[in-house]
Nucleic acid binder design. Structure first.
Lengths: 350, 350
DNA sequence: CTGAAAGCGCTTACAG
DNA sequence: CTGAAAGCGCTTACAG
């Protein structure tokens, strides 16, 4: 039916007052008598008035939309991030425009430009590994590792790793293998650093799958390490953990009876596999809330200060250890079910 | 630095011509002499002119932004969808605003309203199961099952299932168990219907995990069926397949040596597990292209016809069988590596 | 407390 | 082929 939506002046006409007054009343600037303001609001409701964001944007220079730049939408962690950001933004009355910096750093730059062209008031960037985002002419909140310069908010990856390390130590593991993907990833180093710190009394060995020695040959073979006495395998992500888990199972090494496998991120499949994966989870909603709050504040005070990376917060959100069943080696742990919501399997496909 | 961006009138002033002419030249309406148009474009480039979308939106009533409504951003299939849509939209010069209809149908309605309030020109909706979206006052493209009324474009789920069924038949399986999650899901019925049709000569049995008998007790136990002679397990999603796979392995039933497990969607972990999952994949980019094209056309012709669900296309995009290693029962298949890109593990966490 | 007026930066008939 | 003018729907000083 595409009814032409009522505009502000229509409310004004009906009430025989000026558009300015309607605008003031609706924006709650308080320059209107309580009584009149109430009548205006009622009329607006009655007419189903929805302000034109385009007009407002043109006038105020603010669109009420922020951009979300992700290194790769295909990233399995993306749903968690996007969902948390979308929720927080919606609560803050902001729209979220997404952009995928798929592939290259160049693509990241393009994505940022694309968003700017679309007039976002600010953006949240999960930068590509090793990337820095310069001044882009609008406020930016970065979600990265706490050790990254320019970071605004992030989970406490080191602390999360420490929790996991303590857990494994308590279970009695003495030889633990730590498996990382990219040796120059700050996040991965933070995570494994925490694990190592908690396992100072045990034997740990760290291997990086992107190292030359690994890249050649058939790569990593968990059974080999198992034969060497390693009973626990700590990976830097659940995807890697899944890989190790199924490898071991496939080779007849029981998990958690004979070996323990754990990951990070609590990806949606972590609770679906048998045995369920023990993992370390970030509090994405908290990260998102902080990022949005910082961004919003920066947008609001933007007029005064120059637009810059939002550095106000620099928060470090704690991580949570999610103990499930893969906790060997002697199966001490019965595995509590996690309290938080997991991805609804029901909506998998319809 | 937030330099005030140059506006159209500045170009006009510098060239000592009218704003109208600049506008015409830049929008390529062709009412400007080629020579002048060229000079205008050069000046625009030189000044780094970026049109104000807000102003254009106010004037034309079109924002150049579409909304993407997903049933649940947490859905593991979401990354594929979002990425494909974002790519197609960007190519079409459109921005994508996301909305999560998490949880309820009510939330879906709210999400749609939220997007409308933000002035999207149209939207792409992946509706919640069993949901219909009424007229919302702007063009809508629905991505659902081909059998769903109002559907605009979708993968050929039945056809994909048929491919999988044929494959299993060719491998010599005689007793195949089909496992669905929601007995009233159109997509799932389409998929399993296709499988069944191709396996007409074999024995198939279908169970639904949401049926009362399943809901009670400990639910589904693959080993029980294996003992009963079933050698192939077809699930309606890779997540389910992963569950079955790890269950079997955990119980000492080798895959693919003793049993075959397959799924749908080619979720990012499908190629990471051992053995890699055989699955059926939709061509998301094709789906996205069709949806965006249909939407764009509807937006452009919107003035004339009333806004409605886009029904132009109703396309049925073919699905692809991805044969990997889980294809038993006699391990005939050596498992080709899939040709398409899988989610870059590298960006898992940084 | 309320209103008249200007203007945000474009595009689009309409003239010339 | 080019330009003058109006207007999209708001908000914001500025008066009263």
């Amino acid at each position: 039916m595409q009814q032409r939506p009522p505009k502000l002046t229509e409310i004004a006409e009906r009430l025989d007052i000026s558009a300015a007054t309607v605008s003031n009343a609706l924006s709650g600037k308080g320059r209107v008598s309580a009584d009149l303001a109430k009548r205006i609001r009622e009329m607006a409701d009655e007419l189903g008035y929805v302000p034109s964001l385009s007009a407002r944007a043109l006038r105020t220079g603010l669109t009420g939309v922020i951009g979300l730049v992700l290194p790769d939408i295909g990233n399995p962690l993306f749903p968690q991030i996007a969902q948390a950001i979308e929720n927080a933004a919606t609560d803050a009355g902001l729209g979220v425009l997404i952009a995928d910096s798929r592939g290259s750093i160049k693509a990241q730059t393009e994505a940022i430009r694309h968003l700017k062209d679309h007039g976002v008031d600010g953006m949240i960037v999960v930068p590509r590994r090793g990337t820095r985002v310069g001044d882009i002419g609008c406020p930016v909140a970065m979600i990265d590792s706490p050790s990254t310069p320019g970071n605004t908010v992030s989970a406490d990856h080191w602390g999360g790793g420490f929790l996991l390390g303590e857990h494994l130590a308590a279970l009695g593991h003495r030889k633990i293998l730590l498996i990382g993907n990219h040796r120059n990833s700050i996040v991965q180093n933070d995570r494994l650093g925490g694990v190592r710190a908690a396992l100072a009394a045990a034997t740990t060995q760290t291997i990086w799958l992107d190292s030359p020695s690994m890249a050649s040959g058939d790569g990593f073979d968990a059974t080999h390490w198992y034969a060497d006495g390693y009973t626990a395998f700590v990976t830097v992500s659940d995807l890697q953990a899944l890989n190790v888990l199924t490898h071991l199972q496939n080779a007849g090494i029981g998990v958690p009876a004979m070996a323990s496998v754990s990951g990070f991120d609590d990806l949606m499949f972590a609770s679906v596999v048998t045995p369920a994966l023990t993992t370390v989870r970030m509090d994405m909603p908290a990260v998102a809330d902080i990022a949005i709050a910082a961004l919003k504040q920066a947008i609001e005070t933007r007029a005064a200060a120059d637009s810059q990376t939002v550095k106000a917060a620099r928060d470090r959100v704690p991580m949570t250890l999610v103990v499930r069943r893969s906790t060997g080696p002697t199966q001490q742990e019965e595995g509590k079910k996690p309290a938080f919501t997991k991805t609804s399997e029901g909506e998998l496909d319809r």
